[in-house]
Design a protein around this nucleic acid. Structure first.
Length: 469
RNA sequence: GCUCCCAUCGUCUAGCGGUCUAGGACGGGGCCCUCUCAAGGCUCAAACACGGGUUCGAGUCCCGUUGGGAGCACCA
């Protein structure tokens, strides 16, 4: 194992959204690719939003995606002493100073500066005031160099940076004594030995300040790699209805973890013309220099395609097991695995984009009462279809061997006797037996349903057409 | 407003000065197959934002313009 260490440091807000999931995926893939370690750290300093339940949702999401971490979850809230110590150290070395400017004063000066056409960064009023610990309510600010360039070679964006003069002396500890985000991240990343900080591009602008913090702490900055954000279909920020973009929600909608992983990794990253990547391939092929620099839109259509692809490839048993809960939810009662269901699953895999869709298409097999599509019934379960159906029922009833080949002979016989095309025969049967005008091939459908139920449903349908018979 | 970043088909992208009349994939159109729905096969349309340079030669390098995004908190 190499010394390379990456981390995923989300704030637990109740779910894992796809942007965060992709960041986690990239960190995980990069660590695995290079034989390093992947650390999970929960940034739970926001007491309002951070709950154990929220953290659990996060962990569940990561586990579902198969992103296993080597250390953690560490909690930022448990590291307050380390952060406090760092601030004291900076104060002692003169790299930081106390600032007694109040929020109100700051606001006024900021307004005035902007009104005068200037640009605002902290004006440094307390920078050389040398306030002591007993100067009253105060914040602590980092003393930034007045000149020089705070640059780094970004793993994705290449040479990046900003002039120190563009950045004001940032607050690193609030007046209530709580250290701020930038301080906490830098201290944690440094003390946890993180060598590669891979995060969303929204942090690109924060990096110069954090580099200044590393310098002030006499610490070597890690390598930074900023991955472009995922934007919504409009090209704007990701949906405000955050629930829609949580990985849990995708899971509930019947997407497979393999599909999700494959989809996420391809947003912003590519490997030649390859589209399909197993987890193993991701950990073998992923590289940050192949990550693009522009933000990408989430293409749900592609996810559907990938999902169907993985549904198609999944072993029957595993697919059936994955389907069971969705099927149970669909029909309202528990459903057990069976040979018939297994056979149906094989017939349905090419026809289903999600497990939810597959459950819809499979419901007729496992529910006693089929849901009759009225429109289809009106079209196919007609007076003129009745005699044909009747003959077919009789023919099937006489069958000793409930196999597709035998059924086909019956169908052909009925067809020629009534002189109708296959459509005129198969569609009424399909509706009678599944309730819908769409299903797998009619012989396969009947074979899966079984003799008893098929005949019963045909009888029910005939009764519906002509109750007198 | 200021700072930083980005820019190839509708979308994700390949392309790292000549092999580009720009390739792949999703999506879309058409045809075939066909008992429905799919799947599959074949096929078509679809892009280098614009303007200047540099160069024998630019999608590829440089500069502008335009358009997008991000950051400018005692949030994370």
């Amino acid at each position: 194992m190499s010394d390379l260490r990456t981390r995923f440091a989300p704030s637990p807000t109740g779910f894992l959204h796809i942007g965060g999931a992709r960041t986690a995926l990239f960190n995980w893939a990069y660590a695995r690719r290079h034989g390093g370690s992947f650390v999970l750290r929960v940034e739970d300093t926001d007491r309002e939003r951070s709950t154990p339940a929220a953290e659990e949702a996060l962990v569940e999401g990561l586990q579902w995606l198969g992103l296993d971490w080597d250390e953690g979850p560490y909690r930022q809230s448990e590291r307050g002493e380390r952060h406090a110590a760092a601030v004291e150290k900076l104060l002692a070395s003169g790299r930081a100073y106390r600032c007694s400017c109040t929020r109100e004063e700051l606001g006024e000066r900021k307004q005035a500066t902007i009104a005068g056409g200037g640009k605002w960064t902290y004006d440094g009023r307390c920078r050389d005031a040398d306030h002591g610990p007993d100067c009253g309510p105060h914040t602590v600010r980092l003393r930034l160099p007045k000149e020089g360039h705070l640059g780094w070679d970004d793993l994705v964006f290449g040479p990046s940076g900003q002039d120190a003069s563009e950045i004001g002396d940032a607050i690193i500890r609030r007046s209530d004594g709580v250290p701020l985000f930038h301080l906490a991240v830098v201290v944690d990343d440094h003390e946890m030995g993180i060598t590669h900080v891979i995060r969303g591009a929204d942090h690109h602008n924060n990096t110069p300040l954090q580099i200044a913090l590393y310098h002030a702490l006499d610490a070597e900055p890690p390598r930074f790699g900023h991955v472009p954000l995922i934007v919504g279909p409009s090209g704007k920020k990701l949906s405000k209805r955050l629930d829609d973009v949580s990985v849990q929600h995708f899971r509930q909608r019947g997407y497979l973890d393999e599909a999700m992983r494959n989809w996420l990794v391809r947003i912003g990253w590519s490997h030649g013309d390859q589209e399909i990547f197993s987890a193993e391939e991701i950990t073998r092929l992923f590289e940050l220099d192949a990550v693009g620099r522009k933000s990408g839109q989430a293409d749900l259509g592609k996810l559907d395609w990938l999902n169907q692809h993985y549904i198609t490839e999944m072993p029957r048993k595993a697919l059936m097991d994955a389907l069971l809960p969705f099927l149970a939810q669909r029909v309202g009662h528990a459903v057990e695995a069976s040979d018939a269901l297994g056979a149906l699953v094989d017939l349905l895999r090419e026809r289903s984009k999600t497990l939810v869709e597959m459950a819809e298409r499979a419901a007729w097999l496992v529910s006693d009462e089929i849901e009759l599509d009225e429109k289809a019934a009106r079209k196919h379960l007609t007076e003129s279809a009745a005699p044909i159906l009747r003959d077919l029922r009789d023919g099937l009833a006489a069958l000793s061997d409930w196999k597709a080949a035998a059924m086909e002979l019956v169908f052909e016989d009925v067809r020629t006797r009534h002189d109708v095309g296959m459509g005129k025969l198969a569609q009424p049967v399909r509706v009678a037996v599944t309730g819908s005008a769409a299903s797998p091939g009619i012989y396969e459908t009947l074979a899966v349903l079984g003799r008893e139920k098929t005949l019963a449903r045909l009888a029910t349908a005939l009764e519906r057409i002509d109750p007198a018979s």
